[in-house]
Simulated assay, not measured.
Amino acid sequence: MNELLSLVADPAAWAALVTLVVMEVVLGIDNLVFISILSNRLPAEHRQKVRRIGISLALIMRLALLSTIAFIVGLTAPVFDLGIAGPLGAHGEPSFETAFSWRDLILIAGGVFLIWKATKEIHHNVDPAHEDTPTEPSKTGAVISNVGSAIFQIILLDLVFSIDSILTAVGMTDHLPIMIAAVIIAVVAMLLASDPLADFINKNPTVVMLALGFLLMIGTVLIAEGFGAHVPKGYIYTAMAFSAGVEGLNMLARKRKGG
């Protein structure tokens, strides 16, 4: 209790909390886009429920991982090394390396899954004629299967993004209460933004393709980080913001012409 009171009275703790909340929200955008795209493929009556389940699982997973911080930090220890490294960069570090930790392997697997899923969704959007349409008697079973499949895929990506999120939190503060507060605030923000974002993506087909392009880029970055190549997050999110801004201008132009 005394520790909590001292943290509440410490301006540095509040600064760390605000910074960490911002970082967690930014990291959560990737997860939220993925959940929105998956849920929009389901019948309308199931979409909100799947989004709520997916984001709730993200919160549960993050809090569970926070309770095992020592284990999570241990995931960064190398498991095996293939002995291959890239040329040294400007800071004297190799451009890539093959000393893989469990975190690296999880990031690589998550990146491959994201690229596979985004590519599959792009193919569906470009050529929807090949999508199988279930017959009337099998619709209920198909919906149950799709909901279960969507939740399972969300759990897989929640795991990847949760580990990345918690390692970011550990790197920014040593105080567990600040980490827990930041994670809860960020997930609540995701919960509030999930329906508006999903509806916006659903009503604007070109935004769907842009979001899928983001997922391809994020998947590539996850794989690169798994191989020890450091990709500054600022570059990634600046590119995403620029692309979103250009798409916003295109949408405005189409609206003006249509009006």
Rank of each mutant, 00 (worst) to 15 (best):
L249G: 01
A241C: 09
T220F: 15
T168L: 07
L222W: 08
A142Y: 11
G54L: 06
M1L: 05
A229G: 02
L212Y: 11
A189K: 00
T173I: 02
L4I: 15
A198Q: 02
A211E: 03
G219Y: 02
G248S: 15
L4C: 09
G148F: 05
L7F: 12
D174F: 02
N204S: 12
W102I: 06
N204D: 05
S149H: 11
F152N: 07
H46G: 00
N125W: 10
H123N: 13
L57H: 12
G258C: 05
L17S: 04
T140N: 08
M23T: 14
Q48D: 10
P134S: 10
M179E: 01
G213V: 00
V207F: 04
V143E: 11
R47S: 07
S194F: 01
P177N: 09
L7M: 13
A70C: 02
V126K: 11
K117I: 08
L107R: 09
F96A: 13
L212F: 04
V50I: 06
M209P: 03
V33G: 05
G74F: 08
K255W: 15
S145D: 11
T68Y: 14
T135L: 13
T98P: 08
L82Q: 02
P137N: 08
L27V: 06
L42M: 05
E97C: 04
M179Y: 00
R51T: 06
L38R: 00
A241H: 09
I122Q: 01
L197I: 14
P11D: 03
M217G: 08
P43M: 11
A193F: 11
L59W: 02
G245A: 13
V26W: 07
P196W: 07
D30Q: 04
L157H: 05
I236Q: 13
L167R: 03
L216V: 03
N40G: 14
S6G: 00
T68H: 13
F161T: 00
L75R: 07
A64N: 00
D195P: 00
V21Q: 00
V50N: 05
T168A: 15
R51G: 06
L114K: 02
G245E: 09
R47D: 06
P134C: 12
P232S: 09
D127A: 12
T68D: 04
T19D: 10
V208T: 11
G111P: 12
F200Q: 01
S95C: 01
V8C: 14
F80R: 00
I35C: 01
A244F: 15
A15C: 05
P94K: 02
A16D: 14
L252F: 10
